[in-house]
Amino acid sequence: MTRTTGTNVARLWTAPGFADVRLLAASFTSYAYEPHVHDEYVLGVVEWGVQRFLHRDDTRFASAGTLYTINPGDVHAGRAEMESGYAYRAAYVSADFLREAFAGHPLADAPLLFAAPDVRDLELAGRFDRALTLLEAPGSDLLAAQSAFILTLRDLFARHARAAAADGLIRGGAAQAGRLVEYLRTHAAEGVSLDDLAAVAGLSKYHALRVFKAATGLSPHAYLVQRRVELARRAMEDGATPAEAALASGFADQSHMTRRFKAMHGVTPGAYRRQIVRP
């Protein structure tokens, strides 16, 4: 991304030819992400500057050439470490997409997790940055761009990920936490109470809160709000306006949804809707 110090600029859109892959190109000086999670892997590369980021309970620093390898469900946040800021590109890639993309390869046989949220592999970082740039550039050869993206993903997972248990995406694998996560996923657009969660988990209210936070790194309410943001995003991808998406996803009003959407994605819902690229 072009170096533009003193500004906060981000673009989030759907990858051409990959309807379920989202791409982000961002340059930030003062903008700070709040702690949040994604259902997808967050895979990216720092192009310039240094990002200070929180991964679970660990503070880390990512400089130019660092690859982000954040697993689904891992709490993370970030901001510029220096006044000059930083820029990065990222792809949000689901496990389902990877299983399809890697079909016929051993990587498709089991869930995969990265041991660390950042990797120093300059050869792979350069390839990944070029692949993401190709997917954004107008007039790029679509076959070349898509092929470069898939092959780079294959090598990234082959070099730096490992097979994990099926429940490994929920830290700790607690059965109660898994039930709570699934309940919030399927009831996010509805009103949810702590009584509901305690009943689902078969625990006291306090214990339900503690088990959920220990397993996911977030409070149930924070997780619920982020699920609503994702419901709103998908509604807009299906053609809903931001106001319609806010209502359908359980937010009290559009302004609340706008604040939470930008805190999680770095762009406003309106900007995202304008930037969506259909295959």
Rank of each mutant, 00 (worst) to 15 (best):
R154K: 08
D74H: 07
L23P: 00
V42Q: 06
L224R: 01
G65A: 14
V75A: 11
T241D: 11
R260I: 02
P242G: 07
G178T: 13
S140L: 05
A245Y: 05
S94I: 12
R56F: 05
Y33M: 13
Q254G: 08
T29S: 06
N8D: 15
V267H: 02
H187T: 15
F97P: 00
L197K: 02
A177S: 08
A108R: 09
L247S: 07
D118M: 15
G78R: 01
L153R: 00
A95G: 12
V277W: 07
A25Y: 00
D129Q: 10
G73M: 05
G191F: 14
A125K: 02
G49N: 10
F114H: 01
F261Q: 01
Q176F: 08
L113F: 07
L218C: 09
R154D: 06
L98D: 00
A188L: 08
T59H: 04
L124A: 03
P242C: 08
L203A: 15
E244M: 08
R52L: 08
Y223P: 00
S255L: 13
Y41H: 04
A32D: 13
M82S: 05
H55M: 10
E237T: 13
E123C: 07
F149Y: 10
A25Q: 05
R185P: 03
S193V: 15
S140T: 15
H221C: 12
Q146E: 15
P117T: 15
T29K: 01
V42H: 04
E123I: 14
G85P: 06
R171Q: 12
K205N: 06
L209F: 13
L98Y: 01
N71D: 11
D96P: 02
A198T: 14
D155R: 11
A161G: 05
A62H: 03
E230D: 06
L24S: 12
L197M: 12
G173R: 13
I70M: 11
A137G: 10
H76V: 07
V181Q: 00
A95C: 09
E34S: 07
A101C: 13
R154E: 14
G173C: 10
L112G: 02
A166V: 14
G239S: 10
P220Y: 03
A26M: 12
R3D: 13
A103P: 03
A198K: 02
Y33W: 09
W48H: 12
A103W: 07
A144M: 09
R120P: 04
R11L: 14
A165I: 07
Y223F: 15
D253I: 11
P35T: 14
D118F: 10
P242M: 04
G172M: 10
A252Y: 07
E244G: 08
G78L: 03
D57T: 13
K205S: 03
Y272M: 13
F212I: 14
G202H: 04
A240E: 13
R22Q: 11
E100W: 03
E182K: 03
G104S: 11
G173W: 06
A208C: 06
A188K: 03
L122K: 06
L54V: 08
L156F: 10
R120H: 12
A19L: 05
E83W: 05
F261S: 01
A199R: 15
D141Y: 08
